[in-house]
Design a protein around this nucleic acid. Structure first.
Lengths: 231, 231, 231, 231
DNA sequence: TATGAATGAGCGTTCATTCAT
DNA sequence: AATGAATGAACGCTCATTCAT
């Protein structure tokens, strides 16, 4: 049994991992990530469903969420969900795609409006992350906790896009001598992870502003090039 | 055996009769302290199951993990799992409890061995977190997968214990003038979240040492009292 | 739909959040009074299932009856049973409730139509009991097969109702001097037990009429006030 | 669906009934009814188990009785039961066989001691039945409620033996002009059923003597030859 | 002989999904 | 488009039975 060392070393971060012997083949899920956006007879109803479902998926783990319950809460028939979404998993994916898409969009919008200065850009990102974390805290709890197969669904693309944006800002700051960081990608993950950690299990009663401010203190200093007492 | 008089005298005609002592829990020895050297639930087998199951739970989301498959991989009968664990959820909880418990224990051990100095203590914690993240990355991905009910399962207690340890170190550092932090609890969550983020979706090919070192740079600076250009 | 504001705002970080209204029972229409002329649970199908299941429960003991088999015989899906019945036990209870209810109803109907005379009333009851025993003999064999919990299921209520009816008739007869019986409740149980005994293990090839007639002879005499050589 | 009339008319009273299409073949149970009495290493322990199990089988329906519970109550290992009994069903059969055997034996003993007179003989039987019903009321609840396949187990033989004894007494009484009964076998079933009915659901607080006395009044009169106003 | 850990067939039940209306 | 009754594959779990000790 000792020889049977488990081989579940994550081959590919960012994704649920497959096993050594291939027995655990992840069934190719049935969602094309790009969206020939299905006819949406009633866009408002679609949003309703997503809103209700977001709450439900946040309230309990995926396998405990019943579509019947979502339908009942949305005051529609169970079958109706299938007019707007291909499956339960697809429903969640769409919710996350939208949520992360919103976040990505608002980060990009904010960056465009902001002066081309390293700390200001960092602040722009941090502010958006904090606002998102406070206003839609459960979005975070969904991202990876329940979601396998994020590659196929295009979600990891959005996630990577956000990471990339942060990395760019840090790298630009390093170039300019404003920041000192030997591994900006790591730092980007710190930032996202930190925000997520607070969103999920952080202290209650925290305003987005306080949160952003504190993040700026810690990460601003942490990235600051001017000195470096790490010891 | 004569004293064991049966108490099932029908108290009430017309109905099946209940037993004197109500719930009569069968004294399932469940690892009872000491038994005749007969067969006993096998602690090693319990660990085997947990090891296999940890891999399975890491490989796919909770609702796609089949106990039958775990049993097959562990080369035991399906029912055997239920000798050692109350339910599928309990199995996962035990895995997490053990994992988080290990982490907590190693942090505490390391803190005891380490000089009573703020940065050294921070380093001790960071080193353990990084080591854990690299060596058991999927532990992190599990934490929220069935973690509603985390209160009842005692898991959140362990998590809080770890947070508390970090907070203590930061607060002590602040008292001594080594650290500057207006909200240590937030920072503790940043640290845990950051580690988690890297464990789950961070860049591959990262050694625990590199990881710890980089964390120390960012968070060490971020906490550093000596100056503070967050702007 | 705007008023249906989602209440799933995480009240408590660090834990999956519960819903405002707790148990939120889905308004499964379960034969709700009036619905748009859409599909509705089909009362006829319910009866079909009960008919098939009655046969199955009569053919073997409870724990050997397979719902899958009942479903197959009824040519429906296994899940469909659960649309109409809460559980296997509930299915049996409903069968019994209906059966005993029928018996009770037919006894009461017959009593209303019959002249207000002691022997005639006894005959009315006996006739219905005999008819029931001959036409649905397995109903009797079911009565106690899952009848712990008979209180909770309301079955014992029906049974008691029947007993009470018989007792009333006897007591009236005693009042009038037609019957002599010091313990009518006992006699009522004799009658039911006797019928049950014959239904279950009595001689075959017995018509309801013969049976009723013979019962009348034995119990008619047994109750008769006119003389009393019990010795 | 109308044509699909259920064919579960009990072909053979006294046994669970098979279905028209033979799908429901009752698995030949694995107990020889006659007893090469297996080595009984410890006869006392065997009795203990039976005593405990009798209570358990009386307390809940067959399928809810756990051998583990019986073992625990008897303070023996689960496997030990299988030293004394071939299976769970066999355990129940043995309990019933013994119980009914006791009843049969005591009836026969009493009949031998009693004057050769019709009413006295009836009284002998009734007294034993009443005593049995009062002192071991749950024996009755077991006899048919849980037990399929009684033919193969030899139980129905004992039951038939008792019926036969009663029938003999009645027939002798008829021959002698003491009793009038056109169908003694039916009456025998009445008697057994009546006793069973009282044992299971009759009024509480009834002494064996009262019970026997009342039975004699009703059945004594019911069988009495001297007159016959059943109308 | 006695044990109780181990087994695994087999169950009741659920719920995402389909489809007739 | 909308519905919800119907489905049935697939699950978690139980427990009578076996067997190594």
């Amino acid at each position: 049994m000792d020889g049977a060392r488990i081989a579940l070393i994550p081959l590919c971060k960012n994704e649920y991992i497959d096993e050594e012997d291939g027995d655990f083949t992840i069934p190719t899920s049935q969602f094309s990530s790009s969206l020939p956006p299905m006819q949406r007879p009633d866009e408002k109803k679609r949003r309703d469903i997503m809103k209700i479902a977001e709450a439900a998926f946040a309230a309990r783990p995926f396998h405990e969420v019943r579509l019947e319950e979502i339908a009942a809460r949305a005051r529609i028939g169970k079958g109706t969900i299938y007019i707007y979404f291909r499956s339960k998993e697809n429903l969640l994916v769409e919710i996350l795609r939208e949520g992360l898409g919103d976040l990505q969009a608002s980060i990009e919008r904010r960056l465009l409006q902001c002066p081309d200065e390293s700390v200001a850009k960092l602040r722009a990102i941090v502010t958006e992350l904090a606002t998102f974390a406070i206003s839609r805290p459960y979005m975070y709890s969904l991202v990876r906790s329940v979601l396998p197969r994020s590659c196929e669904t295009g979600l990891s693309g959005i996630h990577k896009g956000i990471v990339k944006k942060i990395v760019e800002v840090i790298e630009k700051g390093v170039e300019r001598g404003d920041f000192a960081d030997t591994h900006p990608a790591l730092t980007a993950h710190y930032l996202l992870g930190a925000v997520r950690g607070v969103a999920i299990s952080g202290p209650g009663k925290l305003s987005a502003e306080e949160f952003a401010e504190h993040l700026m203190v810690v990460f601003g200093r942490g990235l600051c090039a001017r000195e470096g007492a790490s010891r």
